[in-house]
Design a protein around this nucleic acid. Structure first.
Lengths: 342, 342
DNA sequence: TACCACGGGGGAACCGTTTCCCATCTGGAT
DNA sequence: ATCCAGATGGGAAACGGTTCCCCCGTGGTA
């Protein structure tokens, strides 16, 4: 308010304005006891009038406590991570903790840099996607001394806590449902991302369960970049031209699955009679499609909420002994209208 | 590495291990001059061996410089803000600056709290969605003394810099295109969000331009919650049942527009002959639809990149005089297959 | 009256860096 | 031999809070 642009306000400025010591101002602003109602009101009024905003950097240094939670994820460009973030925010909002997001672009070196950067702020906890990290990253996480929650995936050895689903199992479950429904000539479409370990694990679980039933993937194709919906369309057209006798198409995500579904509907395909389809993720976009695509829910919101809960819990009870928490959520299969019942 | 869990490592630990002073370690780690190659190597080696991660809190306090950029947006749940964030990250990644995201849920009080929280970390800049803020928020922004970029919208008075499009103009442009194409009985569907000022401005611009042509919106409906694609479907069905003679439907976002499009295609409607459609945003999802929905690109990625660029520029030249930058991007109309040419 | 507990508030040290300035050493010029 | 510049490195004082401990005054109690 007062055009005192000399230098950002400090506790001292407020204390002088209120006629008390800096200590008292600090106590008032942190809602500590040992201050009378009168002084408290005076201090609050002075702080408000001056437009004082405390300096958390100094506060954090002195108290050795930081209200930041590092969240490290590969990307924002598909719907999955934003939804995880929404879950994290929902829970953290109630606790005074603040998420800080870092993006790795699925690149381990980038992940390492981002992690280093984040840890240098001494956050209250780390939420990081995946279980696959560079040696150095794992070392940093382990040495940080703060709670770490690896999310999305449970197939592997976590550094500390973990919240996710088993993608291998998700792949298997889908394969089993497909086999049970009587499909045998199965095609697979997915992203061309060697570093997307979760997609890989789903595919592995999928082929493994097919093998158990004596079935092999009859055709497969991988894409990268571009609009997923359009890619699903193109790839489906291409694959069916190449391998016309397919009776099922498994897509590694709902978006390309939806593209394939729209394409097949236009072609007048008999779904799920002569050809079935399934995707993965359970995005709510599917609700509005002409037919509901079979899919498997990845529990994204819940993963975010649970992970944030673990960090929040540690932050609330700093002295409590640290037990790693391992939560494996169960992806729910939804048959939709594109996977016939046996 | 060494199981020295006593207490997080400090410069002192590294300096002792390397046999130099803390100052020298600090210089090495910040790539400053005045250190011989030999010492530099020894220090680096010691830091690596110990697994030292600098404490930026202390660093920031001492140097009065912070590499964080506050990004304050309403939500992550539609594709628009994640894409803006992607743009911001792309640019900030090159500069050593780190975005910190805060979510407001379109609520001014929440925005105020989040902003306060963010400013208390003394970030290098603030990127905040929209031009409408509470009195207190505007005061905080103005008093903060750091570069502020308001994004998405240019219809209003910015606190400092601004990057966005004119939503009013976007609405007008779309209305003009519709009128020019000869449509006259126009229905509107949008979100029921009194606090989504940008949607409101688009609608205002839209009706204003229609009025100029002597046309009024013949029917309108607002929704909230749920899957946008499904809502678009339902609302379209409902509206056409209620007002069967509509010859155009304008949707406030592409998702509900896509729902409406899918519905009408199923009904075998003659698009764009007897009924036209248009959405807003230019999401790349539209590429894969059976017909391409007419839409208007909101330049989301570019907004993020430009806004981040302004902050990065200020951070790189701290002493340069601060000129507010005003950038109005031009949304591109794309006729797709659902808006006939005149 | 002496004592003590307690409410209310202040002072000093410290958190781990960076900034600023000074000390030392070397080698070449004088 | 002396002087000085440049290279290299160290020391002390911030930075703006919080923690910990102490002080003062008051009022009830023995």
């Amino acid at each position: 308010m007062s055009p005192n642009d000399r230098h950002p306000l400090t506790l001292r400025d407020v204390s002088e304005a209120a006629g008390v010591s800096e200590m008292t101002v600090s106590r008032v602003l942190r809602n500590k006891r040992d201050v009378s109602e009168g002084t408290r009101a005076r201090v609050l009024e002075a702080a408000r009038r001056l437009g004082y905003v405390p300096n958390r950097i100094a506060g954090a240094l002195a108290s050795q406590r930081v209200n930041l939670v590092a969240v490290i994820i590969p990307s924002m460009s598909n719907m999955v991570f934003p939804e995880v973030l929404t879950g994290i925010s929902q829970v953290l909002d109630e606790t005074g903790l603040q998420p800080v997001v870092g993006l790795t672009g699925y690149r381990p070196e980038k992940e390492e840099r981002v992690l280093y950067e984040m840890l240098s702020w001494r956050p209250a906890g780390v939420i990081i996607a995946g279980l696959e990290h560079s040696e150095a990253s794992r070392a940093m996480l382990a040495a940080s001394g703060i709670p770490v929650v690896e999310i999305m995936d449970v197939d592997g050895t976590p550094v500390d806590s973990v919240v996710g689903i088993s993608h291998r199992r998700a792949g298997r479950k889908m394969a089993q449902a497909i086999i049970r429904a009587g499909y045998r000539r199965i095609g697979f479409m997915g992203t061309k991302m060697p570093l997307d370990h979760r997609a890989r694990k789903r595919f592995e679980g999928f082929t493994e369960a097919l093998a158990k039933a004596g079935v092999e993937v009859a055709d497969q194709e991988f894409y990268s970049g571009g609009s997923a919906l359009a890619k699903g369309r193109e790839m489906t057209a291409g694959m069916l031209a190449r391998t016309p006798d397919l009776d099922f198409l498994y897509y590694s995500n709902d978006m390309i699955g939806a593209g394939g579904l729209l394409y097949l509907l236009e072609q007048g395909a008999d779904i799920p009679g002569s050809i079935g389809l399934a995707g993965f993720n359970g995005v709510d976009l599917l609700e509005g499609l002409p037919r509901k695509l079979a899919t498997m829910d990845a529990c994204r919101l819940e993963i975010g909420r649970k992970a944030a809960g673990i960090i929040a819990n540690h932050a609330a009870h700093p002295e409590a002994p640290r037990e790693p928490v391992h939560i494996a959520l169960e992806p729910r299969l939804s048959l939709g209208d594109t996977l016939r019942t046996p």
